[in-house]
Nucleic acid binder design. Structure first.
Lengths: 124, 124
DNA sequence: CAAATACATTCAAATATTATTATATAATGA
DNA sequence: TCATTATATAATAATATTTGAATGTATTTG
């Protein structure tokens, strides 16, 4: 299994608007470079460069059909990332249990804080 | 709801080893800067810089307790990303239905390919 | 009020990423 | 074989990211 470090690297590679579009397109099925070039509306060398980066990181691969290179998805992390990008997040995470917002106390750590700061969360 | 573009930007901000560690730490609960500094073993200004970046992107926020700044998670995209980083992916995605690997044909698009390339996937 | 603590900001240097341009290669078709 | 099509690579220039060093501000404590 991949280390967290490697996964962060993958995340970094994925986090680019053009590459996300490529991956979304490949999620639909196999695509050759020229089809991607048309779809993305960027130069062919640039498409190849992005494909190359995705490939050297093991995210995608290709097979050859005549003079076409047919790219497809390999890494199972991709659908999960793309799903997050589609997901409709609303609101925020719940405020921390122990803070002035929830009126339940202040910092739960051991650092110095103001003398009169009461930690109701400790008192229970 | 956030646009895909904004989410890609968030992904880019998140995809950094130090910032991932910060987010993982904050997932456990509120943390002040000095505690993060100790944990991360990087300089205090650098911690502040990363926190600032995370905050300007709306991923985290803080409350003040005396001289402490207590940071906490805000954006609900964070737990989802962190979950992916923990997940144990194995194997690869299934090979495309229509390619030499699966022996079911070649490129499904409309580009020129070699004359004798048969598309069994079209024939059904 | 002075010192100490907690944190932020600014600037510069080092490094990494991105896109462009030009050129190369390999396969196909005339 | 020659032109065309499909793609890759290399070099460069522009830009962005990252870190370190120095300095600044606010709060608390003695």
């Amino acid at each position: 299994m991949l280390s967290t470090g490697k996964k962060i690297e993958l995340l970094k590679v994925i986090a680019h608007p053009v590459r996300i579009k490529i991956l979304e397109e490949l999620l639909e099925g196999v695509k050759c470079v020229s089809d991607l070039e048309e779809f993305l509306e960027i130069s062919q060398p640039n498409v190849s460069q992005h494909l190359s980066l995705l490939r050297t990181h093991g995210l995608i691969d290709f097979y050859v059909d005549g003079r076409l290179k047919c790219y497809f998805l390999v890494d199972p992390i991709i659908p999960d990332i793309l799903e997050i990008l589609q997901k409709n997040y609303q609101g925020t995470l719940p405020a921390p249990a122990c803070c002035p917002m929830t009126k339940k106390g202040t910092y739960p750590g051991n650092r110095n804080r103001q003398k009169n700061s009461v930690r109701e969360c400790d008192i229970t």
